[in-house]
Design a protein around this nucleic acid. Structure first.
Lengths: 190, 190
DNA sequence: GTCAAGGTTCACAGATCAGTATACCTATGA
DNA sequence: TCATAGGTATACTGATCTGTGAACCTTGAC
């Protein structure tokens, strides 16, 4: 996978256009011609930079993954209380959701790309594993009992809020509250 | 929407083939030619019966919705304890998941069909609202305190387990356990 | 015996799909 | 001065997409 920093100006515009179109309309429904047009480049440049549509899809998810992880990390770091840090991804999700109302791009991508050998498949799956591991680490650092089970519960709450987000049922607030309660209950002395 | 009972034999075979293909490969990625071939019919028959691919997609989701609701209802009815009945959809999901390992067909459909005016859009959204209302009714019947908030939490847990199902992380067992604990905690005297 | 409904066969239209070929332009740096 | 890299412009291939037209077959009901 090509690094984002190594990309040419046209390459960056292509990924940006792909991100907006793929996320809002779906991957299969968006053709490379449209992406080239929206990015102000040509299909030739797109193929020179990325080789295939599949690789561009992978680049789209990798870019998005990078941005999401960096938001989560900075949100975690700005909590000084380690107990509050455990639920920081829920706070990050609230900010993230303001500009992303079509659910989880990785889950959506997995829905469209069932083939495990697709270059984008592993990126989407890894994002969830990363979050699960992060929850485990944060719960352990906060001294929570049963950090593995707690992390799985937090992941489910997080993904459930994200999956139901397009339905606008206010699930994020409810799941954030429950997540906080679970963490507090798992911390021995408080 | 045409009733399933009113469908001709060829129509039923077409919906069955569409269900398998749409769920396993994605909606946009599957063409009507393939569906006609797999169902042992012709494209002409498909269009005579359903009018358009979009309508067939709606029929696919409606059929699936009907089957899922009937499984949930029968699972609810076989619990004699009203407290156990509240988490019956989680039990139904365990059975359902044995043959459906590609996540939630409705969430996946929403990922591919962002247009709210698409005939399938409302069907997918309604399925989630139905489940939320069912949780509310069951929680109320079981005498739970704060049934609305509890129902939202249960929905999030349910959808979270479903969304992370393709990742095979064992989230269903964990979320079922948490759901049971939440219901028990909301029942006054037990 | 006739008529209609369900279904098949097959050809076709028009659009769009991913991906390639070829030629050209322009700036940078050795 | 000249090569190279990044990019543009444009036409093209072959496949696939949704959807239609028209003729024909079969079966059951009246």
């Amino acid at each position: 996978m090509q690094e984002a920093q190594a990309r040419t100006p046209a390459g960056r515009r292509i990924v940006a256009a792909a991100e907006e179109l793929f996320y809002s309309r779906g991957i299969t429904a968006v053709g490379v011609d449209l992406i080239a047009e929206r990015s102000g480049t040509t299909k030739r440049t797109l193929y020179n930079q990325f080789g295939s549509k599949d690789q561009l899809v992978a680049a789209y998810l990798a870019e998005r993954d990078q941005r999401w992880r960096s938001l989560v990390r900075s949100t975690v770091e700005t909590r000084d209380d380690p107990v509050e840090a455990v639920t920081a991804p829920f706070v990050a999700l609230r900010d993230w959701s303001e500009a992303n109302t079509r659910g989880c791009a990785f889950i959506n991508a997995l829905a469209e790309l069932p083939d495990p050998s697709h270059p984008a498949h592993r990126i989407a799956a890894d994002e969830k594993l990363w979050l699960l591991n992060l929850f485990t680490e944060l719960a352990t650092a906060a001294g929570c009992s049963g950090p593995a089970a707690l992390a799985t519960q937090l992941l489910v709450l997080h993904e459930g809020a994200l999956a139901t987000q397009p339905l606008a049922l206010g699930t994020l607030a409810e799941s954030t509250g429950l997540a906080r309660a679970l963490v507090r209950a798992a911390v021995p002395s408080r």
